[in-house]
Nucleic acid binder design. Structure first.
Lengths: 317, 317
DNA sequence: TAATTGCTTGGGCAAATGTTCACATTGAGC
DNA sequence: GCTCAATGTGAACATTTGCCCAAGCAATTA
């Protein structure tokens, strides 16, 4: 006659109680009745089963996996906000990422407390704004974090602020200058202009900054859109640049690279006064942006991220 | 810009809420805060996720599987009590089954309301009693449901009642006659004896009957213990017998076979007056007893079962 | 053998959860 | 353009659950 040790017996009972409670959907009172113990004991058993890790809960839905990844990313990189969207295999990640970003922005805009939201530029961000519904939120102010004029004078992919001003009632404050000025001198001159200086001041006080993350390879947005030349790009890469946020180029450890293009950046330095209380939300997905995103996260340039499942997995690998 | 349909969107939100609630362990209030909705809405989302089957809970413990099987058996065969114990691969199932039976008996004996428990015979039952702790339960009466004397006059595996009388303070009422009488006439004569008649009357009023299930093959307990001859066994099998309970032989559909050995059975007919309110608990495990157990369940001879995982799985196959 | 220590038990209470109901909002159809 | 139905929302209430505390019980030690 084997004598099962007490601990095992306790776990058995706990598993039994947990089964009745979680699987059979009994109430703890019923479990207690069935097992012939008091309700409190039943509660203790269920609790024990739970804390012993006997009870496994999983969400059988793509979003479940995503939220696990989001939690892991938050933990790993100290993010206070992280959204991971399911990546539809074989399809561009930027669309779902844009949708998720729109959701985040929408939730923020619906908050009753007045705040300042800063927006960067880029295709994904543009798509996110496109997906935004009309919202009445005059309590907020929306400011462009960076110049929103392309070198050729168009606003092609950079008129994020004009797009959002059609959707929401919040006042918007554009920064009518290029993302990257032709020269450091030109930038400094532009910054003395009143409207630009005011917008930059407002940008520096943004509570939520939504920014894209640009890569530094052949598909670099800054190159494609003509802000920098191929030679300048190569120079930056030689200096270790792996990505850029608002035009600020940074290396693999997330350090902003001194000199070069960074002397011509129009954007305010979001990290200057300490980013405490400010949500800097990166929005990016796709294998090409992986080194850039990783660098930004490693360097703490972002404390929030919206990305896709695939990229999230890769970031954690 | 793909337009995800509303139903999908709702499920996504529900999954998200469920994730926060079940995996992240947030309270529904917190979930509501995070998702920017009211607590009630969060509750509805979690509820939706649950009822949509998005949330899967499993108990990571052998007992979990067992209880699933027990529930299935209860459903399939209309059992009001069913216990399935983990079968340790390669080891005899009767020991864990005996332990589980002891637990059931113990729980019953600890009930404050007075009752009558009837006991059958057999090795498993004997082992169960052996595993029973000492219990003070004078409010109950314990009666032998069947004769507890072997043909050779010994009580070898059949003195279940004597064993339990050493363990508990409840009065016990043996049935001092063979399980199977030598002849129908002998049985009828014995039944006229006062003590035997009294015990049979009590047995007929048992609230809980704990009985073994015997197989009808070469390993039949009745054969091994000399109650019937090989020829009689073959005769019974020819008549369709697949098993026996308390000596009553029954066929694959659970019908008690008329005539033959059944004319000499000492046990009271538990099913005579309708088994309403009476718990008839079968105790058996092992591949050899499978046809017998299945027959008993199919015919409704049992409304309770203690068995092992392997047997339970086979019964449901 | 008696006292002590540690664990378990059940009662009571506060928080969390589930349910119901009345109302608002949205969208379809006339 | 209006009405009506269907669905979603929040408030109030009922139930269930989690937790703390005092008492009981068993094992251990002096």
């Amino acid at each position: 006659m084997d004598m099962p040790d007490r601990a095992t017996k306790r776990l058995d009972d706990a598993a039994r109680a947990a089964w009745l409670y979680y699987i059979a959907g009994k109430t703890q009172d019923e479990v207690a009745g069935i097992l012939g113990v008091s309700r409190q004991s039943a509660q203790r058993m269920v609790s024990l089963a739970m804390s012993s890790g006997l009870v496994k809960v999983r969400i059988d839905h793509p979003i479940g996996q995503c939220m696990s990844l989001a939690a892991a990313l938050s933990e790993r990189f100290g993010l206070s906000l992280c959204e991971v969207v399911p990546s539809l295999p074989g399809s561009d990640a930027s669309l779902p990422v844009a949708h998720a970003t729109a959701d985040v922005i929408e939730r923020w805009l619906l908050r009753p407390e007045a705040g300042v939201m800063g927006l960067g530029t880029g295709r994904t961000l543009r798509a996110a704004i496109e997906a935004l519904p009309r919202i009445d939120c005059p309590q907020h102010r929306i400011v462009s974090l960076t110049g929103n004029i392309a070198p050729d004078g168009s606003t092609a992919f950079y008129n994020v602020l004009f797009s959002i001003s059609d959707k929401v009632t919040a006042p918007t404050y554009p920064l009518p200058m290029p993302v990257i000025a032709a020269s450091a001198a030109e930038r400094d001159m532009l910054l003395t202009q009143k409207t630009i200086a005011a917008a930059r001041d407002l940008a520096a006080r943004a509570d939520l900054a939504v920014v894209g993350v640009g890569q530094m390879d052949a598909a670099a947005p800054l190159l494609l859109d003509g802000f920098i030349t191929r030679a300048e790009l190569d120079e930056l890469r030689a200096a270790g640049a792996v990505g850029e946020i608002l035009g600020w180029a940074f290396d693999a450890s997330g350090k902003v690279i001194p000199g070069l293009m960074n002397d011509r950046v129009s954007a305010a330095d979001l990290w200057a006064g300490g980013a405490e209380g400010r949500q800097i939300l990166g929005v990016a997905g796709g294998a090409g942006k992986l080194p850039a995103i990783r660098g930004a996260l490693e360097g703490g340039l972002l404390n929030g991220l919206v990305t896709d499942e695939e990229t999230a997995t890769a970031l954690l690998a």
